Simulated assay, not measured.
Amino acid sequence: MRRWTILPAALVLAATTALPAAAAGSVQPATRCPIGWDSPAEGRSTAQAPELRGIRSGEHPCFDRLVFEAPGSSPANPVGYHVRYTDALLQDASGHPLPVRGGAVLEVIVDSPAYDRQTMAPTIPARSGQPLPGVDVTGYRTFRDTVFGASFEGRTQIGLGLRARLPYRILQLDDRLVIDVAHTANGTERE
């Protein structure tokens, strides 16, 4: 008789512990991302921006981010920039093609040098045609590659390799210029 009372209790216990595991593996609804960015070729020029002191990247739920650290810049004293999609990254000044991995290439030119204007010493130890030092985009949803183009006559050129041509936006914050590239074109986490 005991055997029959233990068996139903074991079945109930097994069923209740399996439910959370099944729910955890279930498909969740797509996350809405308030993108609405257009991605036109954008530009803004400034007379003389501060030197770049670093470039870093980050992942967010709806976009990948590239940050140019320019101490002293702000929305009132912005860093100039020119951003556009291109079929090939051509090195500033020389015109040599630089390979950038990904399905699309976003050319970013920041009107700040990657060197000290007084000493000409590099502020970012980057080499033309090479990945940005210290910027690892492995595993990012959108970013595939970052390539240093050049820092020439007060401007710094970067090639940003992306999964595809996706919407982007540019933000000027205190001490930094930010480029966000959406994970999807339609504003949902899953496409």
Rank of each mutant, 00 (worst) to 15 (best):
A24F: 14
G54S: 08
P122T: 13
Y168F: 15
I179E: 04
L162E: 03
R155K: 15
I158T: 06
S45M: 06
D64S: 08
Q172M: 15
V12F: 10
Y140N: 12
V67H: 00
T184G: 05
P61Y: 04
P125D: 14
P133R: 04
R2V: 10
P131N: 08
P125F: 06
A93L: 12
W37C: 01
A182R: 02
T5I: 12
V83P: 00
L132I: 07
A22S: 03
L162V: 08
F148T: 05
A18P: 01
R2L: 13
L106G: 11
G43N: 14
T119V: 05
T119D: 10
R44F: 13
D180Q: 11
E107C: 04
G161V: 05
E69N: 10
N77P: 01
G134V: 07
T188W: 13
S73Y: 10
V178A: 00
I170W: 02
G36L: 08
V147P: 01
G80L: 08
A15H: 04
V100A: 12
P133V: 01
V79T: 09
E153Y: 07
D136T: 11
L160W: 02
R176F: 03
V105S: 09
G36M: 06
A182L: 12
P34N: 12
V27H: 10
A70M: 05
A24T: 09
A24W: 14
I124L: 15
D92P: 00
T17M: 14
R163V: 12
R190Y: 12
L90T: 04
C33T: 11
G80R: 04
P133N: 02
G95N: 07
D145K: 03
I179F: 03
F143V: 08
P34A: 15
R32H: 11
A121G: 00
A21T: 09
R65Y: 07
G80I: 10
G134T: 07
P122E: 09
L13T: 13
D175G: 09
T5W: 14
S74F: 07
Q172W: 02
R176G: 01
D64M: 06
H82E: 15
G139F: 05
L166Y: 03
P34W: 05
R144H: 04
H183S: 09
T16C: 01
H82A: 15
R101W: 03
G36V: 06
L162M: 04
G134P: 02
T146A: 10
P40N: 12
T119P: 00
I179C: 04
G72T: 01
C33Q: 04
A21N: 07
P75M: 03
L160I: 08
S94P: 01
G134D: 06
P131L: 10
L19R: 05
L13A: 15
A21M: 13
G134M: 05
N77H: 14
G139I: 02
R127Y: 10
Q157V: 05
R44S: 12
L160M: 04
F148E: 06
G187H: 10
R53W: 00
S74N: 06
A76W: 07
F143G: 03
P167M: 09
F143Q: 05
F148N: 00
A121S: 11
E59S: 15
A126I: 12
R163L: 13
D116Q: 08
G154T: 03
D111C: 00
I179T: 09
L66G: 06
C33P: 00
R44H: 14
I35V: 15
H183P: 01
R165E: 15
S26H: 12
S45G: 08
Y140E: 06
G43M: 10
I6M: 07
A76I: 00
A104E: 09
P40M: 02
